[in-house]
Design a protein around this nucleic acid. Sequence first.
DNA 1: ATCAAACTACGACCCTCATCGAACTAACAG
DNA 2: CTGTTAGTTCGATGAGGGTCGTAGTTTGAT
Lengths: 116, 116
Amino acid sequence: MADVTETLTDAHDGCLPEPSPEEFRLAAVLHALADPVRLRIVTELSSGQHEMACQAFALPVTKSTSTHHFRVLREAGVIRQHRRGTARMSVLREEELERRFPGLLTSILRAARLQP
Amino acid sequence: MADVTETLTDAHDGCLPEPSPEEFRLAAVLHALADPVRLRIVTELSSGQHEMACQAFALPVTKSTSTHHFRVLREAGVIRQHRRGTARMSVLREEELERRFPGLLTSILRAARLQP
DNA sequence: ATCAAACTACGACCCTCATCGAACTAACAG
DNA sequence: CTGTTAGTTCGATGAGGGTCGTAGTTTGAT
């Protein structure tokens, strides 16, 4: 599974549309993180490898619902997605969020770890 | 839902039901703050006097909608409300939120000030 | 007691959203 | 090409939420 297939699938056309940091909207970020499933995605992304396929989360929803949640996170600017073979890898946009909304993601992640 | 907190029984029963800090749910707080009107309420509460009547906010919605938003904030634990004459005063629960979710409110308020 | 001010409660409306299933697409292995 | 794996897209659906208007409540003043 942990194959080292050299990435020709680079960051040109495998990337899905995402906002630039200047386009981040606070309400959109808060709304994105106000859902248990999405909060779990972000929590796992922050404490695992910096890149994870959708399947790797084992979410308690169907694939189509899963796609929906990843899109909400991506369109809010919380994650970035690109293809890796048949998989869609997700990455937390930590630095960009930190620059735009200092301390926000950090405090939310800490709060999330404190709760069921 | 109607949690009768025994704190401050001193000020008879002008207080409306509110959760105790242990009952704060992160998703509820984030959802409460993900609305522009409610974010504005909280922002004004944090930068004005520590007590404000609903009317004082001059919100761009009707009174009934206003009541709705204040209730969402109160039930999430973000604000406390008590009567003062015919007015309903609102107070930010800054310390309790800080104890439960350190840095959260602070970073959200800072982010809100950075945006339209 | 009556009146006004400031909210609250209750429906109603419409729109958003989380969810699903089924059909479709993309990438890769044989 | 065939088949598999991993996501996406497209309705549909049902719950929830933001908005309003109207009616009711509470408090203080006259």
